[in-house]
Design a protein around this nucleic acid. Structure first.
Lengths: 250, 250
DNA sequence: TCGAATTTGTGCGTATGTATC
DNA sequence: GGATACATACGCACAAATTCG
């Protein structure tokens, strides 16, 4: 390989990538077969294979054994979890999207008491093993599952109050801010930490994707007077959505 | 290959992975060399190579040419891009981290003029093809590359002013807010849209990873009086970092 | 329905360049 | 400089899946 040049398989991958992002090879187009690549670029079988592997790892194409290698759809991600928390009832990212963009949303939930695991305990600043209310959500937009989340609330705060179960009673489904207000806890701060990783098989089957697709995980914690009152992990498929924040400067 | 068995390279990779997560091979341990693997598992050179590639793609190990393949530190994700934009000079996520966590950071940059592509034009609310200043950054912390970004500023705002080049002149490297203040543009708002996807080969080689590792992309736009003055894509490896936001409620 | 051709995916052996020790 | 080790590259073989006549 001549001096200062990039490896052949990256050069081939780069050329094919260009044609994909340029639109010369729209989604569902079949890439040249390994043999064709070998001929067209004058490279070996190994180089053609490695080039395809790079594009597959990047999620741009998908190999179908016996058939070919195809350009995948790259859907325009929609915004979700638009923040600013400008009003009551904006408690979950989903309810926000609902109000912000007029999307009809529905959700299912399931609550149960459990002992706080160490990670949850640290986020809620309680002792590990203390009782918490865990609620799992699956949010849908027009019937399609779009994200799921798990939230935890310390029972030392909500136990034996009307808002102990997030989705039941007069304030059921109203969001953390309103529910906590009902028991004289003024939610005034929230932290969100956004991470990303390959989706687990469980999550992706619930969200209608395939394992290995990238998901974003928003670890959100609500505070009332410096004290954590709820924390949640929101799992969002990254190929369809973005998490948007709007902040003042200074 | 016998019936119902997984590929040899996955079997070898699985065995090595077990030893790593079990703690039998703690961080900084050197893996058996390709030749040793070939002998110990009775497989070919290719299989040993593919097995190492799997572990590298999973981020568990890191190959150092001429030296060996080493178990990587288990990366507890650190916070980055802590927001709130509480003060001047907090213009880039990196500079924030610098001030927030006392991390010594350095960066390289390279600026050039170009025509705005349609996507950039929309974000800056200018006409496609209008001239912009593009600046590419690679940020390092203690020598290690941690994130990279590309920013665009309309030359209709900064052209023929002392702050046209972000990293030169008296305000070079001072951040968007201060630089724009110097030409009487008061930056008062910022939007950040967080997405995630598999990293491209180019990005990951710059960031010390391999293609396919998950990255987060923060699309940030600064506004002055409702008008976009700078937009940037910040690429952050998701296995090592999280993007943290702290927001008031209401 | 069968079978041939194509294509991906896996696997083997080898050779060479280059970084590190 | 020499030995070691990774990284790239070439050429080949075969199984499984798919496509198509």
């Amino acid at each position: 390989m001549p001096f200062g040049e990039q490896p052949a398989y990256l050069r081939v991958a780069g050329d094919l990538r260009q044609k994909i992002v340029d639109g010369h090879m729209p989604p569902h187009t079949r890439l040249p077969s390994q043999a064709r690549i070998r001929e067209e670029y004058g490279v070996s079988d190994t180089v053609a294979l490695e080039a395809r592997k790079v594009l597959m790892a990047e999620g741009l194409v998908e190999g179908r054994s016996g058939s070919g290698t195809y350009v995948r759809e790259h859907p325009l991600p929609r915004r979700v979890a638009r923040t600013g928390y400008r009003g009551l009832g904006d408690a979950t990212p989903f309810r926000q999207e609902q109000s912000d963009e007029g999307v009809k949303g529905t959700w299912e939930s399931e609550s149960a008491q459990e002992d706080a695991c160490p990670a949850t305990a640290e986020r809620l600043r309680i002792a590990p093993g203390e009782r918490v209310m865990r609620t799992r959500y699956l949010f849908r937009s027009e019937g399609e599952p779009v994200m799921c989340s798990t939230s935890w609330e310390p029972l030392s705060l909500t136990g034996r109050t009307p808002v102990m179960l997030p989705e039941e009673g007069p304030l059921g489904g109203k969001g953390v801010v309103e529910r906590m207000a009902a028991i004289d806890l003024v939610v005034d701060n929230v932290t969100e930490e956004v991470g990303a990783r390959p989706g687990l098989a469980e999550e992706m089957s619930a969200l209608g994707g395939v394992p290995g697709h990238v998901v974003m995980v928003v670890a959100r914690t609500f505070f009332a007077g410096g004290r954590p009152v709820e924390t949640a992990d929101v799992v969002i498929p990254a190929d369809r959505y973005r998490v948007a924040y709007h902040l003042p400067v200074k």
